[in-house]
Design a protein around this nucleic acid. Structure first.
Lengths: 156, 156
DNA sequence: GTGAGTTCGTTGGTCGCCCAATGAAATCGC
DNA sequence: GCGATTTCATTGGGCGACCAACGAACTCAC
């Protein structure tokens, strides 16, 4: 009678994979929480990965950075533009190969490094609060497995 | 069976919480993979949550939707505009309270429901591939704990 | 009632992230 | 040498998501 199309049991309960669903929610919360902890440092959520890579690696080609972060080139271009404008990053053309941009963290940016590390430590703490060592280990192990699953799946 | 999360100096000073780091990477991969699986349905990553909520709940106030999805009101406004433009959603003003917008899934959108469910099932499968029941259970349980951690931390 | 406060949704701005297409520079093939 | 290919970065467009600020509508106090 009802023109309402359904309740087909094909959809079963409406929730697709329950774990995926939860993972998606946790991801958002985690990202949000990280962003809030990071805000005082002046960085936005996502930029910290880039900065951490630069702090660790020194001077790198932009293409290398893109590969390391596994991001779209255009994403990196825009992020770097903003970070450069904010004085956190320095970009120079490679004289040897004028296509490539050499990127490095600005000297002043290193002042942020410990603060970012602390923010992440706090995030880690909040995330894993109340979990015993066994759970933490299991979680880390399973997460790594899942990462491999999704990486290999993620078309080459 | 040795735990081998020892990426050597990775956990030294530059990187914050190793688990958070991995979680962030997995989140991105998971989202990306979900987006690709979802693309054939015509929905973008993130919209499926909204649609699944509407399919499940029927007609709801936009504010309710915002609360259910735990999103910013402006985010929902914009998402709904696009979804409405795409014919997946119908919005009407509540005559009783002219502030509120009543939102429901369009009749045609129900055709997408099983496809979305299937995409999520596939995502679930890929995500948890190679994990035994015990690991899956543990992962789900820990994820729920973490969700609580981050939720209480978030704004409560 | 009239006014204070609250709820609801929208706008404007910013960022991360993607894809597609383009242009600049180096490299390979001949 | 010179064209075809590949590499690298940028631009333009789109969506998700946030925050801050705003105006419209309803509620409550007086």
């Amino acid at each position: 009678m009802t023109s309402e199309p359904t309740r087909t049991d094909a959809t079963e309960a409406g929730d697709g994979g329950p774990v995926s669903q939860t993972l998606a929610r946790v991801s958002r919360l985690h990202r949000l929480c990280g962003g809030k902890l990071l805000r005082p440092t002046g960085l936005c959520s996502g930029q910290e990965f880039l900065m951490m890579a630069l702090w660790r690696e020194g001077s790198v080609r932009q293409s290398e950075l893109t590969k390391m972060l596994d991001l779209d080139p255009s994403t990196v271009t825009l992020m770097l533009r903003r970070l450069e404008q904010g004085g956190h990053v320095v970009r120079t053309r490679d004289p040897q190969d004028r296509r490539v941009m050499l990127v490095r963290a600005s000297t002043e940016s290193y002042a942020l490094r410990p603060r970012v590390a602390q923010a992440w430590a706090l995030l880690e703490e909040r995330t894993l609060d109340g979990l015993d060592d066994e759970e933490r280990e299991a979680f880390a192990r399973i997460l790594s497995k899942i990462e491999k699953n999704l990486t290999s799946t993620d078309d080459g």
